[in-house]
Amino acid sequence: MGIEKYNPAAILIYFLCVTLVAMFCRNPVLILISLGGAAALFLCRDGGGGVRTHAAFFGLFIIMALINPLFSHNGATVLFVVNNNPVTAEALIYGVFSSALIIAVLYWFRSFSLIMTSDRLLYVFGAASPKLALILSMALRYIPLFKKQATRTLRTQRALGLYTDNNIIDTARGSGRVLSVMVTWALENGIITADSMSARGYASGKRSSFSLYRFGKRDAAFVLSVLVLFAVPFATALTGLLEVRWYPIVQPPPASAAVLTAYVCYALLAFLPAVIETGEDIKWKYLRSKI
């Protein structure tokens, strides 16, 4: 249990803020902070099990970092020349950072999909449109049911000897027959569901929307701190203080109090979930050792 103890809407706001800053600013320090925070969170969530994910991301990183200097020949420092085309240090640096940014965003998305399970997403949609939330919930109920029935029908037909899978044509014909009857089945069973809905007062008037999640003081505090930590670097970026000139030579923004504050705030934001998670782990260990 880490960040998911907060209200799903708060979690959504967090992920929006943390990815937005890195994508918007394109500042090497912010990108590195973002990558670090994203990787740390994913490691915490996944417990170091996603070796293949990390390997895939690293491969992707190398490829994307190398593509830019092959195509972009801007920059003052020429490293070497290939087929009369100069490969420059600046283009390489730009490639490295922009692919780091993409990898960071990918890591954020992976953690996001691990944390925002279907009922959390549904809650967020429900806040926007209760009708849409109900439809989604019914679809999530119905699709597995439909799949199960289709499989069962296929097996039955096979055991009756009416479905052969000796060759592709037979298989297609057999599946076609099953699919067509599944439409009838869905309609027929939909009637029962509709009956059950109206028996429980559906469409009898205005509906309320219930959810297990509440928005408490803790959630408000979380959202507030996320917004503050987001606003500082974002505002600084808007003033242009964080801007980097990549070509012809890389010119990082001059270090000033404002810039440093922005970096620190973003670092706090990016590492917030990882800190919450490890903090809790340590607390548990401490409590256990006391027991």
């Binding site: 009922d119 919930s137 009898s204």
Partner: peptide, 23 residues
């Protein structure tokens, strides 16, 4: 076929939602 939603807790709440009862 009588079950409408995907989660047990939501199914329990479904009828009450229809009656517009507060959370």
């Amino acid at each position: 076929q009588q079950i409408v939603t995907d989660k047990v807790w939501h199914e329990l709440a479904f009828g009450l939602e229809n009656l517009n009862i507060p959370s």
